[in-house]
Simulated scan of single mutants.
Amino acid sequence: MKCEEVKADDNTSTRKQFVLLGFSDFPNIQRLLFGVFSIIYVIILTGNSLIIIITRLDKALQKPMYFFLANLSSLEICYVSVTVPRILLNLWTQDRSISRLGCAYQMCFFLMLGATECFLLTVMAYDRYVAICNPLHYPLVMDQKICIQLAVASWIGGVPVQIGQTCQVFSLCFCNSNQINHFFCDIPPILKLACGDLFLHEMSVYVVAILFATFPFMLILVSYSKIISTILRLPTARGRAKAFSTCSSHLLVVFLFFGSASITYLRPKSNHSPGTDKLLSLFYTIVTPMFNPLIYSLRNKDVIAALKKLLPKKMV
């Protein structure tokens, strides 16, 4: 159905502006929410920046595992910067309007960076698989050239598909309302504003979610099933504990990110509710980026040692 066929008198099908309702349901705590999100944003920027700095400066961390960790930290900074500044602006000014083009840009970058995170977490699982299951071949399999190629592929692999998906969503006719009941421009709440037959568009969302989230998640589970099997065969309890410590950090991040994202995008449309969508979105947009540095540093002796060298003794 073409937009012209459903165009209303007030020209709602060709809206040039949306309104992000965000957390408007809680009018009395807008300043409190601004303070909380500001603190979280600073924590994310500081924690992930520290990870990037120490992996660059400390010679003990010049390994593939930490190369990918630095990429993940760089990604998290970009990822939260797509959504959190807009949230802070809306909370402070109470002006929740966003242009159609601005909304499209936000969605596009959010989806591209989300796909990158899925791929990077998968690559990190593969790195741990090779390191633990094939330690003798590890230096050959994960040499510098391969690591760079895997990182580049992770960053650009989802770009064409997510640009196409964004164009597809914003080619729809929006005649129901211009109020997005969410705190950023995401696919499910925007599709609720569209009119006409959305079956093919909804199916394309499911297909992309399966390719970019479910399939990588299954690969990670396969990798870790083999890793756990190998760890259980290690002769010493100390060796098993060290291997489990390294892998459990990554698995915790994986379940936080993939669990919340998969539920959001793969749930049937009838089960979507604004409150649940916002809560789940907080996990993969803000909570995971905030806890990544803590999870990886507090459970990693090499990272803690590097932090002690970098920071003043009173701060560590």
Rank of each mutant, 00 (worst) to 15 (best):
L310C: 09
V159D: 02
I180C: 06
L310G: 10
F18Q: 02
H201M: 13
L298V: 04
C195R: 12
R56G: 02
K278Q: 13
E76N: 15
F184R: 04
R96I: 03
V253G: 04
L251Q: 12
T236F: 07
S248V: 11
H272D: 15
P189I: 03
L32S: 10
P289K: 13
L198C: 11
K63W: 04
T276Q: 15
D25P: 11
I263N: 07
I40G: 00
G35T: 04
F199E: 15
F215S: 15
K313L: 12
L193V: 01
M107K: 04
I98Q: 02
V152I: 15
A306H: 01
V36N: 01
I295D: 05
E4C: 04
V169Y: 02
I220R: 05
L69N: 10
S74K: 10
P85C: 11
I210Y: 11
L32A: 07
S177F: 11
D197R: 06
L279K: 05
A115P: 04
P188Q: 06
R299H: 05
D277K: 07
L57K: 13
N11M: 13
Y66E: 12
P289L: 04
A243Y: 03
S154E: 11
P135Q: 10
V205E: 00
T285V: 06
D95F: 08
L298W: 06
Y129L: 09
F291D: 00
Q165G: 06
Y41V: 08
A125F: 13
I29M: 12
S81T: 14
F37K: 05
R299M: 11
I44K: 03
I304R: 14
S223I: 05
T122M: 11
S225F: 15
R267C: 13
S99Y: 06
S273C: 07
S260G: 06
I228L: 14
C147Q: 07
K145F: 13
F174H: 06
Q168S: 10
M315I: 15
F199P: 03
I227H: 03
I220Y: 05
L45I: 12
W155H: 09
P139M: 10
L120P: 02
R240F: 04
L294N: 00
M1S: 12
E4G: 14
F110H: 09
P274W: 00
P216H: 08
T288F: 11
R238D: 15
I39W: 10
I44A: 00
P235F: 05
I187M: 08
P268R: 03
F34H: 08
Q94H: 12
A60V: 01
G164M: 12
Q62L: 10
I231V: 15
G157T: 05
P139L: 09
L307V: 06
P27H: 06
T166L: 10
A241N: 10
E76G: 13
R267W: 10
K226W: 02
I132N: 02
L101V: 12
G239E: 14
I87Y: 01
F215D: 03
H272C: 13
S260L: 06
L111N: 07
T55D: 13
L252Q: 06
D10T: 10
L61I: 07
S81Q: 10
I148A: 14
H201Q: 15
V316L: 13
Q179I: 08
F110S: 12
F212V: 05
A131K: 12
M290W: 02
L221G: 07
I54K: 03
L101A: 13
Q179R: 15
P85M: 14
C247P: 01
Y79S: 00
F257A: 00
P27C: 02
A306R: 04
I210W: 03
P139V: 03
I190L: 15
S248E: 08
